[in-house]
């Protein structure tokens, strides 16, 4: 097996995550799909690190994880406060600014 298959897997997972973001309407599930996309990117970074033979790719993946953790904290706080004000976690219901 050629290690490039890891990149194909990462691409597949990324497009599944992107499809999920477009399809789902529960804000939490949309958020989980974003996490899936981030993870797919991390896999690609790790595979590229092996391709180039240095550790820079792993460092970038590490920073991605840190940023993802910060993003999850803030995003979930936003979802909770949205749910408090409108009693629904559906992204379709948050249409206050729509004409």
């Amino acid at each position: 097996m050629n290690p490039v298959n890891y990149l194909y897997l990462a691409a597949l997972l990324f497009s599944i995550g992107a499809t999920g973001v477009l399809i789902r309407r529960n804000a939490i599930v949309v958020f989980m799909c974003v996490e899936l996309m981030l993870n797919a990117c991390n896999l690609a970074f790790v595979a590229f690190s092996r391709l180039h033979g240095n550790l820079d790719g792993q460092i970038i993946a590490f920073f991605t994880m840190v940023v993802a953790a910060a993003e999850v904290v803030v995003g979930l706080a936003i979802i909770v406060s949205l749910f408090r004000s409108r009693h629904s976690a559906s992204v379709d219901d948050a249409s206050l600014m729509k004409l």
């Binding site: 897997l9 790790v46 092996r50 993946a61 590490f62 994880m65």
Partner: peptide, 11 residues
């Protein structure tokens, strides 16, 4: 598991 297989033990 894939990270471990790719030599990224810490990650």
């Amino acid at each position: 598991v894939f990270y471990l297989a790719n030599g990224a033990y810490f990650l």
